[in-house]
Write a protein that binds this DNA or RNA. Structure first.
Lengths: 153, 153
DNA sequence: CTGGATCCTAAGAGATACTG
DNA sequence: CAGTATCTCTTAGGATCCAG
């Protein structure tokens, strides 16, 4: 069984390497990320803002959430930016918005199926960030030292 | 074999769903993406700029590249922003920079192992973007129409 | 409670010119 | 060739006030 596992891991790793070049080809075909109408650049610009990914992560973690709940959960976000971000996510179909005709008003936000599929990708990046932060910090420190030496008299 | 495949797919899907909540827990532990020192936010802010991910994709696709080669491949980037972006990627350990003492000078950039592992995650997002752009466009159009109706007299 | 409307600024990004 | 140095300019984002 450990042999079979080792074999499977090898296969997975190979598939992974294969997948990288294969997926690169897919992304670079037919136009290599040219600006007019490139989906990759469009989506990346869209979710590359300061709060979209964070909002998706929080909605994924907590499920259905009200405006004020999100406001308090997302550390540092302002009222205005939460509104702007949610409108954008709703517009692109990642988040659904349900208004209840009550007083005081209640509005609940939730990830759509499309939003969950985005969450799945974003989680890959988030976990990667957490796992590799150590290396990044190390590299930054080394580079800061190198820069420091250059500034010495 | 098709039975076994179907079984495997079921397992993969279940693992995937499992993985989402599991990875969410990992990300939200111990602090739920709080701003001081959160790796996820740090990395996301870092690669969330306009050119970093694009540069990583191009370097992954073409392998070793010179400054001017990158400049011409990355559609729309300016000389200055390419320099700034490459310095950032190098500083964080995603890209290596090798200078050849020749005339005219030659400098080659290449993804490090850490850069390749980032590329792997970014590719997930990129392919997802390409695959789901249709749905996003549809949602945007629908939302534009809805807004249009609200503006009618 | 949920946000819309305004005003304001700090950072990101483009253009251009110059250098080892 | 591979940058650096300025100089603007645009815009994302924050603060505040107001309204349904």
């Amino acid at each position: 069984m450990s042999n079979s596992l080792r074999h499977m891991e090898g296969t997975i790793v190979d598939n992974q390497s294969e997948k990288i070049s294969h997926r690169l080809e897919k992304i670079f075909t037919p136009a290599p990320l040219q600006v007019p109408g490139c989906p990759v650049r469009d989506v990346l610009d869209r979710i590359g803002d300061k709060w979209s990914i964070l909002s998706v992560l929080h909605l994924g973690h907590s499920g259905k959430l009200r405006f004020n709940e999100l406001l308090h959960r997302i550390d540092g976000i302002s009222q205005r930016m939460l509104t702007v971000t949610l409108r954008g996510l709703e517009r692109d179909g990642f988040v659904s918005r349900r208004i209840y005709a009550e007083v005081p008003p209640r509005v609940e936000y939730e990830l759509t199926a499309l939003g969950v599929s985005l969450l799945d990708q974003v989680l890959g990046l988030a976990v990667w960030a957490q796992d590799n932060m150590g290396d990044i910090i190390t590299s930054r420190a080394a580079h800061a030292n190198a820069a420091g030496f250059q500034n010495l008299p």
